[in-house]
Computed example of a mutant assay.
Amino acid sequence: MGITKADTVKLISAEGFEFVIHKEAAMISNTLKNMLSSSGGFQETELGEVRFPEISTPILEKLCQFFYYKLRYTNSAAVKNVPEFKIEPEIAIELLMASNFLDC
């Protein structure tokens, strides 16, 4: 059984770069969870894509990596063996602001 379009979400950066990730990973972000699971007929819910005009491609890429990291290691039996999630110092502030917006 393969992955269907309903199992994924497309996140689009300010530059128009598209990241297609598993919906389960995107739901790490409370903001994305609310956008993608609302019953109000929002475009994000219907199309399964979210545009971020304020988030650059490198920052959105790092956020996607974090979603998978958190999905893998949250509630893991091997909590003591969780590797460090590396963040380059030059993107730390911008990443912090974006993660705050996404509530993740």
Rank of each mutant, 00 (worst) to 15 (best):
P53G: 12
L32V: 10
I21D: 03
K80R: 12
K23Y: 08
Q43R: 15
F85S: 08
I12L: 01
P83W: 03
A6Q: 10
T8A: 01
F17R: 13
A78T: 00
M35K: 13
A6E: 14
F85V: 11
C104N: 04
A6H: 03
E18L: 05
Y69W: 09
K80G: 01
N75F: 07
F67W: 15
M1D: 13
I87S: 03
Y68F: 13
L36A: 05
T4Q: 15
A26H: 09
L32P: 10
Q65Y: 06
R72L: 11
E44M: 02
A98F: 14
V20G: 00
I55D: 02
I28S: 11
S99D: 01
R72F: 07
E94R: 14
H22I: 01
V50I: 11
G41D: 01
S56M: 13
I59W: 04
S37V: 02
R51Y: 12
S76A: 09
N75R: 09
I21L: 10
M97A: 06
F17D: 09
K33V: 05
L102A: 09
S99G: 13
H22E: 12
S37R: 08
F52S: 01
A25P: 02
G41Y: 02
T4W: 06
E88N: 08
I28N: 04
I3D: 11
D7M: 07
E49R: 08
L71N: 10
V9E: 09
A6T: 06
F67S: 07
A25W: 14
E54W: 14
Q65R: 14
S29K: 03
